[in-house]
Amino acid sequence: HYVEVNGKKIQATSAEEAEKIAKKFAKIYNATVLDLGNYYKVT
């Protein structure tokens, strides 16, 4: 599981952790979290 933010991949140990990381970055960048199955993308 990982999160992609601005083209950078951030490794996460679980889907739950990946979701938390994605939501945190989405809040910082006022962005949207896309759940793409095996990873989250912040756009």
Rank of each mutant, 00 (worst) to 15 (best):
V42N: 03
K20E: 12
V42Y: 02
Y29P: 04
K9V: 13
A15M: 15
Y39M: 06
A18C: 06
E19F: 15
N30P: 02
E17I: 07
N30C: 11
Y39Q: 02
N30Q: 09
T32Y: 10
T13D: 12
Y29D: 04
T32F: 10
L36T: 04
K9Y: 10
S14P: 00
A18R: 01
A15I: 14
A26K: 06
Q11P: 13
I28R: 09
K41E: 10
E17K: 06
Q11C: 15
S14W: 07
T13L: 09
I21S: 01
N30L: 06
K23Q: 13
K27S: 11
A12P: 01
L36V: 06
A15N: 09
T13Y: 09
K8L: 13
L36M: 15
E4F: 08
Y39P: 00
V42A: 03
Y2G: 04
G7C: 10
V33A: 05
S14L: 03
Y39H: 10
K24R: 14
V42E: 05
L34T: 11
K20S: 11
I10G: 01
K20Q: 11
T43A: 10
K41I: 15
E19W: 15
I21N: 00
Q11R: 14
T32S: 10
L36P: 01
S14F: 01
I10S: 01
Y2Q: 01
A31D: 05
V3H: 01
L36F: 14
E17C: 13
T32D: 11
F25A: 04
E16Q: 12
V42F: 01
A12F: 10
I28M: 15
Q11S: 12
I28L: 14
E17N: 09
L34C: 11
V5M: 05
T32Q: 14
K27M: 11
G37I: 07
T43D: 10
K9T: 08
V42G: 02
T32R: 07
K20G: 07
Y2P: 00
A15Q: 14
I21L: 12
L36G: 05
S14Y: 01
K8W: 13
N6I: 05
V5I: 13
H1G: 02
K8V: 14
I28K: 12
I28Y: 14
V5F: 12
K24G: 08
A31S: 10
A12H: 02
V3F: 02
A26G: 07
T43L: 13
I28E: 11
G37Y: 05
A22D: 01
T13P: 10
E19T: 06
V33L: 07
E19M: 15
V33P: 02
